[in-house]
Write a protein that binds this DNA or RNA. Structure first.
Length: 111
DNA sequence: AGGTTGACCTCAT
DNA sequence: TATGAGGCCAACC
């Protein structure tokens, strides 16, 4: 009976797990895809809960300007940038290079 | 039970 | 064009 809210978190995990390697997306894009356009913050909370879940490529999720705002929440601040570069994503000054090109919109790509 | 914070985004000045 | 404030929903104290 009371299990609907938790579904939102799992929904975020599913979308994040579907992000192709070398690609990145934004919180708002995921929130919009899930239907909660204004709840971009909840996506961030979901990713925090996904912290123990290493299977979730949370490092591929950045804000709308392509800035690694959540790197501080990783085990190591450099882990996020390191992982992105490890997948071929260039990062400079905590900012994703060619973010518009690497941007992966679930509403369009996943459709 | 209520108020504040937060891995954000959009609008208004 | 840049800066400021508000809104959103859930978790934490």
């Amino acid at each position: 009976m009371s299990e609907g809210k938790k579904n939102f978190f799992e929904d975020v995990y599913q979308v994040v797990k579907l992000i192709p390697k070398g690609r990145v997306t934004s919180y708002g894009a995921i929130a919009s895809y899930l239907g909660s356009k204004g709840s971009a913050r909840m996506v961030g909370w979901a990713l925090i809960a996904s912290h123990p879940m290493t299977q979730i490529p949370a490092h591929r999720v950045v804000n709308r300007i392509g800035m690694l705002t959540g790197k501080q929440h990783f085990d190591e601040p450099n882990a996020m940038r390191d992982r992105l570069e490890q997948e071929g994503v260039k990062v400079e000054n905590d900012q994703v290079v060619n973010f518009e090109k690497l941007f992966w919109d679930p509403a369009k790509e996943l459709l």
